[in-house]
Simulated assay, not measured.
Amino acid sequence: MTAQQLDSNGRLRHLLTLEGMPRPVLEDLLEKAQACHDSAIGRAQDGRQALAGTAVCTLFFEPSTRTRSSFTLAAQRLGADVMSFDASTSSAKKGETDTDTLRNLEAMGVRGFVIRHPDDGAVARLAGVVQPGTCLLNAGDGRSGHPTQGLLDMLTIRQAKGADFSALKVMIVGDVKHSRVARTDLHALRALGAGEIRVCGPANLLPGADDPVLAGCTVGDDFDAMLDGVDVLMMLRLQHERMSEGLVPSLEAYHARWGLTAERLRRAASGAIVMHPGPINRGVEVTDEVADGSQSWILRQVANGVAVRMAALQALLG
């Protein structure tokens, strides 16, 4: 995958995954994203025409709110011509393949595709059929990856705790097994040299012990015990289908053992930050008091999403 997304000079050709991404490339994207921050939130005009005349398509085969809106705003901030594709109202409903859909749009002059897809590895597969000069950005595929979410999470941690991750204790909590966000964050945290990574949740919602995504992590299901000294808490969304699958007895039972309350947060390190990729199930993963409290960096993550996506688009298409 790394060879597919980097050219012979080590520059990004596509953004497909953070797994195996060289640390200098990852850190360069984070530096670019920080530089885009003021433009991203409308406080500066820098780079407003960087992609003028470039056509970018948000090609979504799966629903999205934050990611799609964030990419659209990012492309517009850079002056790109943005078109939105929704599979539910397209020829995909008539049987057109995703490859043919992409090729038809590419023939219209689209150079950048932001793709969300329900199947693992779908974006990498599509990257194998595009023309030279066309760039793909993975906006989430199956359970495997969501690289810009991982980048915005790392940017948020850097803003809160500094660029040196070596002394940080980071914990990811919840349905790690089915979360592309968790997998992406774990790849990024290892690449950036996080001092200690803890993974916590119900045993049946954690990857198997032989899953390489857990390499080097401390894994357990006792949330209260594992909270001690944590600097960064990443709370994951509990997907409600896990209840219908019998993997979670009830929302109340889940919250009682793995929900973050103000009382529990006091077990973490002084100044610990709370993060969540959204959407939040309030009263399940976190309480209102925590989500809206002074240690919550959740809205900062959302704001950082625009900056990160500006940086990614500019790195690939600029």
Score class of each variant (00 low, 15 high):
Gly79Val: 07
Ala272Lys: 10
Ile172Thr: 15
Ser70Tyr: 05
Ala127Met: 06
Ala139Ser: 13
Asp98Tyr: 12
Leu238Pro: 02
His37Glu: 13
Leu16Met: 06
Ala55Trp: 13
Trp258Gly: 06
Gly195Phe: 11
Glu31Asn: 09
Arg43Ala: 04
Asn281Ala: 09
Leu105Met: 14
Val248Lys: 07
Thr72Lys: 02
Met1Gly: 13
Thr156Arg: 08
Ser88Arg: 14
Asp81Ser: 13
Val302Gly: 09
Ala75Tyr: 10
Leu78Arg: 14
Ser91Ile: 05
Ala191Lys: 04
Met235Ile: 05
Arg266Ile: 00
Gly162Asn: 07
Val25Ile: 07
Val306Trp: 09
Gln45Glu: 15
Asp98Val: 14
Ser8Trp: 11
Gly229Asp: 12
His146Val: 06
Gly142Leu: 08
Gln4Leu: 15
Ala315Tyr: 03
Ala50Met: 01
Gly278Ile: 03
Asn204Tyr: 04
Arg264Phe: 01
Arg183Cys: 02
Gln76Pro: 00
Lys169His: 11
Glu27Lys: 13
Gln131Asp: 12
Ala215Cys: 04
Gly10Asn: 07
Val213Glu: 05
Ile157Gln: 12
Asp81Tyr: 07
Cys135Gln: 12
Pro207Glu: 12
Ala182Gln: 02
Val308Gly: 01
Lys169Ala: 14
Leu168Gln: 04
Cys135Met: 08
Leu51Asp: 10
Ala74Ile: 04
His187Asn: 11
Ala191Val: 03
Met108Ala: 13
Gly112Arg: 02
Leu73Asp: 02
Asp98Ser: 15
Val110Leu: 06
Leu186Arg: 00
Ile41Leu: 10
Leu155Gly: 02
Leu26Gly: 01
Val213Ile: 15
Ser294Trp: 00
Leu16Cys: 03
Val219Thr: 12
Ala139Tyr: 03
Lys32Ser: 12
Ser250Tyr: 10
Gly79Leu: 06
Thr99Phe: 09
Met21Tyr: 00
Asp231Ala: 02
Val110Asn: 08
Glu289Ile: 00
Gly216Ile: 10
Cys57Gly: 05
Ser244Lys: 14
Val284Leu: 01
Leu186Cys: 05
Arg190Cys: 06
Ala256Lys: 13
Thr67Lys: 02
Ser69Ile: 13
Leu313Thr: 04
Glu241Gly: 04
Gly305Pro: 02
Pro207Cys: 05
Leu51Asn: 10
Ala50Val: 01
Glu285Ala: 05
Gly10Tyr: 11
Ala87Arg: 07
Leu126His: 08
Val219Arg: 08
